[in-house]
Amino acid sequence: MTSATRMGVLALLWGSGFLWIKISLNEGLTPGWITLVRCALGAAVLLVLACAAGQRLPRDRATWGRLGVAAFFCNALPFLLFSVGEQTVDSGVAGVLNATTPLWSLLIGLALGTERPLRAGRAAGLGLGFAGVLVIFAPWSHGSGLTSWGALALLGASASYAVAFAYMARRLAGRGTAPLALSAAQLLAATGLSTPALATGGAGAVTWEGLLAVAVLGVLATGLTFHLNYRMIAEEGPTAAATVGYLLPVVSVGLGALVLGEPLTARVVAGMAVVLVGVGLTRPRRRPGPAGRARTNGPARSGPGLPGPTGSGSAGSRGCRADQAAPDRRDTP
């Protein structure tokens, strides 16, 4: 499989997470159940992969405590907020708003002092990125703007990812001797933390289509995409994985329009373009040395700047990767 094909497959699986959330909601599942099942199935996939790789779950309480915090901000909370938000917002718009995570990460880094003072280019990118969000929301447009609790929940999910990345960079970075097992443990913790979310929303008549959609969301768009992203970073380096991140909102918007018939408005497309340009400008420019130009021979410590719904992978997804914590990283919603 060529690099371009691999990136396309990963972007399609990762970016489809917003579509599966929307279908699950339309077919009777509540946000709480979607969150719980997604975490549980993603954990199951990663546990199988970890066992196949001979990796064991962590045993010390300190690591599990850190993983619990990461699981809340990187999985349980954003997964729930994405599902809540998509009750009133199109899946394509959800994917675009997810792309704002690097902007929130930069703001948090500035507040914590982990980011150097911004130069003109990155400052302009930060302002441009949030200007794109404003274009999408269009609060000045009465009756056609997106300002709602659902849209704010989606922004909250993206900000939660950013909080998780900042925490993981400080508390979990460098513990990646068993990355599959660590991420499986994180999603196991997220499964437990998601249980109270079952109280959110009223129960509906769940269809087989809804069950299939949430199964695909957990197995493919969360568990499998993590593994594919891990392989891409290990074999082709973080730059290739970061490129996939920029494709996610394009995939989510395209699938929403093709599969669900969501309106592809000029305002949303323009806002998406402005957000992505702004995110691109905020990425730090580094001159790679000889080691930086070489292909990565093992797991990298940084991942895509635009997490997906598993992030991640998602991590994003993409549940977030415990061994890839970095402020500019996804996973999958």
Score class of each variant (00 low, 15 high):
Met1Cys: 09
Thr2His: 14
Thr5Phe: 12
Arg6Phe: 13
Trp14Thr: 08
Gly15Asp: 01
Leu19Asn: 01
Ile21Gln: 01
Lys22Ser: 14
Ile23Pro: 03
Glu27Phe: 08
Gly28Trp: 09
Thr30Lys: 10
Pro31Ile: 05
Trp33Ser: 11
Ile34Gly: 00
Arg38Asn: 12
Gly42Asp: 05
Ala43Phe: 03
Val45Gln: 04
Leu47Gly: 02
Leu49Asp: 08
Gln55Pro: 01
Arg56Glu: 08
Leu57Val: 04
Leu57Arg: 02
Arg66Gly: 14
Arg66Asp: 11
Val69His: 10
Ala70Lys: 00
Ala76Cys: 06
Ala76Phe: 00
Pro78Asp: 07
Pro78Ile: 00
Phe82Ile: 01
Phe82Ala: 10
Asp90Tyr: 08
Ser91Gln: 04
Asn98Arg: 12
Leu107Gln: 06
Gly109Gln: 09
Leu112Pro: 03
Leu112Gly: 02
Arg116Val: 10
Ala120Gly: 09
Arg122Tyr: 11
Arg122Asp: 06
Ala138Gly: 03
Trp140His: 07
Ser141Thr: 10
Gly143Phe: 04
Gly143Asp: 06
Leu146Met: 11
Gly150Arg: 06
Gly150His: 09
Leu152Ile: 12
Ala153His: 08
Leu154Ala: 09
Leu154Arg: 05
Ala157Pro: 01
Ala159Gln: 05
Ala159Gly: 09
Ser160Asn: 11
Ser160Ala: 15
Ser160Gly: 11
Val163His: 07
Val163Ile: 15
Ala164Met: 11
Phe165Lys: 02
Phe165Asn: 03
Ala166Asp: 14
Met168Tyr: 05
Met168Asp: 12
Ala169Tyr: 08
Arg171Ala: 15
Ala173Lys: 10
Gly174Met: 10
Gly174Pro: 06
Arg175His: 15
Thr177Lys: 13
Ala181Trp: 00
Ala181Asn: 00
Leu182Trp: 02
Ala184Gln: 03
Ala189Gly: 08
Ala190Lys: 02
Ser194Cys: 09
Thr195Ile: 15
Ala197Gly: 03
Ala203Met: 13
Trp208Gln: 14
Trp208Asp: 14
Leu212Gly: 09
Leu212Cys: 11
Leu212Ala: 15
Val216Phe: 08
Val216Trp: 02
Leu217Asp: 00
Val219His: 03
Leu220Cys: 06
Leu220Lys: 00
Ala221Val: 00
Ala221Leu: 01
His227Asp: 12
Tyr230Trp: 12
Arg231Gln: 14
Ala234Trp: 09
Thr239Trp: 08
Thr239Cys: 06
Ala240Leu: 13
Ala241Thr: 00
Thr243Val: 11
Val244Phe: 05
Gly245Ala: 07
Leu247Gln: 07
Leu247Ala: 14
Leu248Cys: 11
Leu248Glu: 07
Val250Cys: 12
Ser252Trp: 05
Gly254Cys: 13
Leu255Gly: 02
Ala270Thr: 15
Ala273Pro: 04
Val274Thr: 12
Leu276Tyr: 02
Gly278Thr: 02
Val279Pro: 00
Leu281Met: 15
Leu281Tyr: 04
Thr282Leu: 03
Pro284Asp: 05
Arg285Lys: 14
Arg285Thr: 13
Arg286Ile: 14
Ala291Ser: 13
Asn297Val: 15
Gly298Leu: 11
Gly298Tyr: 10
Pro299Tyr: 14
Pro299Gln: 15
Gly303Lys: 02
Pro307Tyr: 02
Pro309Phe: 13
Thr310Leu: 12
Thr310Cys: 08
Thr310Val: 13
Ser317Ile: 08
Arg321Glu: 13
Gln324Tyr: 08
Ala325Trp: 00
Arg330Gly: 11
Thr332Arg: 12
